[in-house]
Design a protein around this nucleic acid. Sequence first.
DNA 1: CATCTATATCGTAAAATTACGATATGAATA
DNA 2: TATTCATATCGTAATTTTACGATATAGATG
Lengths: 108, 108
Amino acid sequence: MNTTLTNEQQRLARMLKALGNPIRFQIVEYLAASQSCITNDIVRALPLAQSTVSQHLKVLREAGLILGEIEGPATCYCLDVAGIQWLKEQIGNWLPGCCPSAGPLIQL
Amino acid sequence: MNTTLTNEQQRLARMLKALGNPIRFQIVEYLAASQSCITNDIVRALPLAQSTVSQHLKVLREAGLILGEIEGPATCYCLDVAGIQWLKEQIGNWLPGCCPSAGPLIQL
DNA sequence: CATCTATATCGTAAAATTACGATATGAATA
DNA sequence: TATTCATATCGTAATTTTACGATATAGATG
């Protein structure tokens, strides 16, 4: 076995790890539902301290799943659509030989 | 925000977390490439102790990504095709509104 | 039966993650 | 300018994960 992962595989694993945390999964779902944005909304919706939420947002940002933009005194977060798109494509094309009855996923 | 995840979302997060570890990601890729099986092959292919590999295999098993079957003195591992199929479907249908230019993934 | 082989599990140490309060920063506001 | 508000970062404690060696188990082999 090749003992290293390609850069793409590392990027994918990083995304999966970020999403594997239930809190972060929820944050992504929240951003998808609300379209936008303000960090404080997320903080108020979760039973966690502001600093903890900020830390989770950083992980999601560094994984390429969300984008943060400073808007005046606040920060507006939204999904990194390109990153999520890439993730979905990677998983869609992953292990193509694994599920022969299904075949690869095709993007419409 | 609903502060809990559905059972399906929890199952998905568990799979993503399991795959988010680079070693476990490699093990899954290895099993996909080799079709089968024997644990000791995986151990010899990785720079890790046998007990550590066994632990990773347990995590992958409990996440529903691989199956283990005792074959005489050894254990034969292979992908849990149904579980992986489910994962791919979940991700394919995930955040359908997120990437409007792409639309949902359709299974052929 | 004694031994070897393959594997899982146990106990534990080290490292990473997760959470918090406190603090720093920077923009808006009085 | 002083204050407030939103957020990021720091330091740290608690928890979880990851890794190892040792041990237990169960089937094969001499």
